[in-house]
Design a binder for these strands. Sequence first.
DNA 1: CTATTATATTCAAATATATTAATATAATAA
DNA 2: TTATTATATTAATATATTTGAATATAATAG
Lengths: 112, 112
Amino acid sequence: MSELPQFKAEFFKALAHPLRIRIIDELRGGEIGVNDLCVRLRVEQSSVSQQLGLLRSRNIVVGRKEGQNVYYSIRDKTIFRLLDVAKEIFNNHLVGVQDMLSELESSSDVRR
Amino acid sequence: MSELPQFKAEFFKALAHPLRIRIIDELRGGEIGVNDLCVRLRVEQSSVSQQLGLLRSRNIVVGRKEGQNVYYSIRDKTIFRLLDVAKEIFNNHLVGVQDMLSELESSSDVRR
DNA sequence: CTATTATATTCAAATATATTAATATAATAA
DNA sequence: TTATTATATTAATATATTTGAATATAATAG
């Protein structure tokens, strides 16, 4: 039997953290240094490094050391596509909610 | 600031479980009953129901009761696309591993 | 060498999730 | 009603993850 479900689950687990998502989003524009990341995200250095470490261990991100700075980038940009599809799913859900709301409105004849 | 990262993280968390991934994959062919799911996945009923419950609570899946059976289906098929993109990412990684292996081989001159 | 700056790691406590077995509910059949 | 079948929920325990503070490392400046 395929191991793929197991791998996929672990991969999604790596993405299942708000700060990690935010970090990945920041990397859309290309390589960025740790310090910059901390400033932009307004998160303390130790937390950012921790999550970068996790992403690194899952091969989602790669660091390049230059002097005393480390610049990170996404290893496989397909991940951005993944996040975009996730956003699309949310948009669909939001539409669903709006539909529900307007149905409620019209059925109770409150409007106008 | 956007709440999207938080939502996305929770969504990915819902997908971050091998059995839940397998369940979703089974739903690609359309609606399927709980019992069928248990048989196909060779997992006991209680575990399947538990994970279905989780997926239901996250609006990923929806159940339709007919007699004593409950048939589940995916609420938004965009999720299949998400899983496909995830698979693509794995394929990329596997290629990367193969590259690594062949580099090792050639650098140590063990081959042929 | 010492101090400073950038980044990473570790640790303990809190919280969350997974697992397994047991039990509950609900529909139907006898 | 009682028994049976299908599904869902609960509870106990085990395991994993998150968080924040402290500390470690590594590069460079003085």
